[in-house]
Amino acid sequence: MGKWAELPGTVALLLMLSLGMAGGSYTSAPVPPVTAACSFYSGRSCEECLKNVSCFWCITNNTCLDYPVRNILPPSSLCAMSAARWGACWINFEALIITISVVLGLILLSTTVCCCYCCYCRKRSNSLMRLEAEEENLMRERERRKQEALQRKNERTVKHNEIRKKYGLLQDMDHPYSRYENE
């Protein structure tokens, strides 16, 4: 009953009753409590330690330590970064941090490049649309000026014909043979 004495009385009693060990001796391998401290896994294996995400494993002295939540990185006084394992036993904490920072950097860089490219394309399409609209306006303006010029030309022709008619210089084009009759 030595291992169970570390737990609070009610929890230990409930665990012992549920396992049927209230009065008997405990001979099999100890089952880790649900809320075991990280130090409980020291001297065991890295995999057992890292099952609890609040723990990290130090290879140099085979200890399972509580991850210092107040610090972003565990201080070297606890364990060297190259010897610390967190999340996976096959990669050290130093390599894990470098890998994560490189991946996040690439994601950030690619997102920035994509945003800049999209903005460039939008700006370019807007300028092309603006150029097309300007060109269309110029074409309409040319057509309007051409129509005004034709209208002024017709008005001048009408005025000139009135003056010619007034002074008898306008010949009737309705009857091309009329001029031979007058002679």
Rank of each mutant, 00 (worst) to 15 (best):
I107P: 02
W86C: 06
I91S: 11
C114Y: 04
I100M: 06
S82H: 13
C114F: 04
V103W: 05
T99D: 02
L104A: 12
L104Q: 10
M81E: 13
C89N: 13
M81S: 12
E94T: 03
C89M: 14
I107T: 12
I107E: 04
M81L: 15
M81N: 09
L96T: 14
S82P: 03
V103C: 02
V102K: 08
G105L: 07
A95N: 11
W86Q: 13
C115V: 02
L106D: 01
F93L: 04
V103E: 00
I100H: 11
L106K: 03
L96G: 10
G105W: 07
A95T: 10
L96M: 14
N92D: 15
S101G: 00
L104M: 11
V103Y: 02
T111L: 11
M81I: 11
I98M: 05
T112S: 04
F93D: 03
C114T: 01
I91G: 05
L96Q: 12
S110V: 03
A88C: 10
C114Q: 00
C89P: 12
W90D: 15
G87E: 13
L109K: 07
V102A: 03
T99C: 08
C114L: 03
W90S: 15
M81C: 08
C114H: 02
L108V: 04
L104I: 11
V103K: 01
V113F: 01
L106R: 06
I97F: 04
R85S: 05
L106W: 01
S82R: 12
C115P: 00
I100L: 10
I97V: 13
S101R: 00
A83D: 15
G105C: 05
I107M: 09
I98C: 07
L109I: 06
M81V: 09
C115E: 00
G87I: 07
I100T: 09
N92L: 01
C89R: 15
R85T: 04
N92H: 10
L108R: 09
C89A: 15
L96S: 15
F93N: 03
A83R: 12
C89Q: 14
I100S: 06
T111W: 14
I97D: 04
V113D: 00
N92C: 07
L104R: 08
T112L: 11
N92M: 05
E94Y: 09
V103I: 12
R85M: 08
I97G: 02
L104F: 08
W86R: 15
N92K: 08
T99Q: 05
A95L: 14
L106A: 04
C114M: 01
I100K: 08
I100N: 04
S82V: 13
N92Q: 11
S82Y: 13
